[in-house]
Amino acid sequence: MNAFAIAFNRTIRVGWRHPLDSLTPMAFFIIVVSLISITVEGVSDSENGIAIAVLWVVLLLSTMMASSGAFAQDYEDGSLEQLVAQNESLYVSVHGSVTARWFISSVPLLVLVPLGAWMLKLDIEVWWILFLTLIPGSIVFTLFGVLGATLTLGVGRNGVLLALLVLPLYIPVLLLGVGACQRSATEEPFQFALIGIYAIAMAAITFLPFAIAALLRVSQEY
């Protein structure tokens, strides 16, 4: 088995034994969407713009929450030490681990998006573009979330710090994603944003694991 499969397999297994790590962000997603639908007048009456923005922002926050625990357990129990000591291809392992994390944390949230869209009375025509942008968007959110988690490894109560580090980095994808969906809803051209969001996702997939692997090494080195 190669390093990708080994890391993927392990992360999925551990995730499977901790269903709350996936379920809590899902519950958070639904609760926040409900709160907004109840309190913000006109979310569901207005054109689709506000509803799209709400879905994106809430998905962003839930993903950040879900990825905040990445590598924390490995750091505590010494697995990370083994990973760094024995593994020649840490970059590939990080890829495996992050991919698994996307399946654990983002896919359940993406499954909830139609429910959220329905709660916000989003036109069904917008759904396809929503998914076309949310999939690469959630990949970028997960990668940056894991980056933030590795930056703060070993720092107790890292939740708020993580948010401060990661949220500014989310802005481009958020704007391009929301913009593409809103323009599609008003039948304006949105190809630019679509290309942009996929380009950012490709760049993030290629380069961020380097940074994450380097930080994992550093976390063991000092």
Partner: peptide, 21 residues
């Protein structure tokens, strides 16, 4: 150092995306 580098790459992208948005 890592965060600063990731951030500096992001600033022009942010500017560009806000402009477009």
């Amino acid at each position: 150092a890592v965060l600063a580098i990731v951030g500096v790459i992001n600033i022009p992208i942010i500017k560009y995306s806000v402009d477009w948005f």
